[in-house]
Design a protein around this nucleic acid. Structure first.
Lengths: 151, 151
DNA sequence: TTGCTTATTGAGAATAATACTTATTAAGGA
DNA sequence: TCCTTAATAAGTATTATTCTCAATAAGCAA
């Protein structure tokens, strides 16, 4: 539905003197084909690409993820300790937030249009160019509340 | 003003079979004395403690930060790439959020009571025990928009 | 108060995600 | 089609954080 095409990516890149490479195109495609609510770590993406026969190096993957996050194409999520996850940055009707259990990392997505509005307004007021806006709720899930494990 | 005392920390720890140590008490004190809006990385804290004559090991600092974040005493902030920052988790009138430039890390704090309400309601609905709730706005600041530096 | 159990600490080593380096390749403008 | 230079691959380097383990000291019970 988003239909952010490779052509659009190309012109955005070229505007800044950058280039559209097959690697970047492939990675964008992967994220667009990802079922809603899914997200990938750098290593997940690397494995997925290899499974599909695309031999894109880890360096390129890290560089591309960072680039696309800074372009506002991907969102960088901190869903577990120690590494980041990425997902397509969807506009309003699909835009969502995360409720995360800090013990087991169980994550629930939820929507709230008011939050994106607040974020947009706040960025605008300060003259910032908005890339992403996410409410992170850190909490302990019902199962972990019952568990007696330390921490 | 918060006046979350060492005694309160002690009983919360003891309830779970844990202990109040001088190290934990000192670290809590540091965060309580921190001017509003300030936050520390593990290394910042380590340096600050050393400057004040407290020789608390880095291991203990990392363990304590994680523990206090999971108790809801501290909030874990992702204000720059590569490492976390921590600040006291203040209740409603002081509770705030961050607007961050992904290029230079310039950060602006802002308040919005509706967000904490949304977070509280969402966690409750799912039976999660709320620890922290923060809206992260990733954006590019005016200065960096003008800059021609890559990325 | 004294002793006992065991959580916690300190020091250093280990881990792991990410960034860096450099020769090579190839995108995009002329 | 050529030329400039951004991007890639591969491997190495970095660095924040966690882990290991012996030594220490909370907090409970007698």
């Amino acid at each position: 539905m988003t239909a952010y095409t490779a052509t659009a990516l190309k012109s955005e890149l070229n505007e800044r003197g950058w280039r559209l490479t097959p690697q970047r195109e492939t990675i964008l495609q992967i994220f667009q084909d990802l079922p809603k609510g899914n997200h990938l770590s750098a290593e997940d993406l690397h494995n997925l690409l290899q499974a599909e026969g695309h031999a894109i190096s880890l360096s390129t993957i890290y560089r591309t993820l960072k680039l696309m996050a800074r372009m506002g194409i991907l969102r960088e999520l901190e869903l577990a300790e120690g590494h980041k996850h990425y997902e397509i940055n969807q506009p309003s009707p699909h835009h969502h937030h995360h409720l995360i259990c800090v013990k087991c990392n169980k994550t629930i997505e939820f929507k709230n249009d008011a939050i994106l509005k607040t974020g947009t307004r706040t960025a605008q007021k300060e003259g910032y160019h908005l890339l992403d806006c996410q409410l992170m709720i850190h909490a302990i899930c019902p199962a972990c509340q019952r568990s007696l494990l330390p921490m």
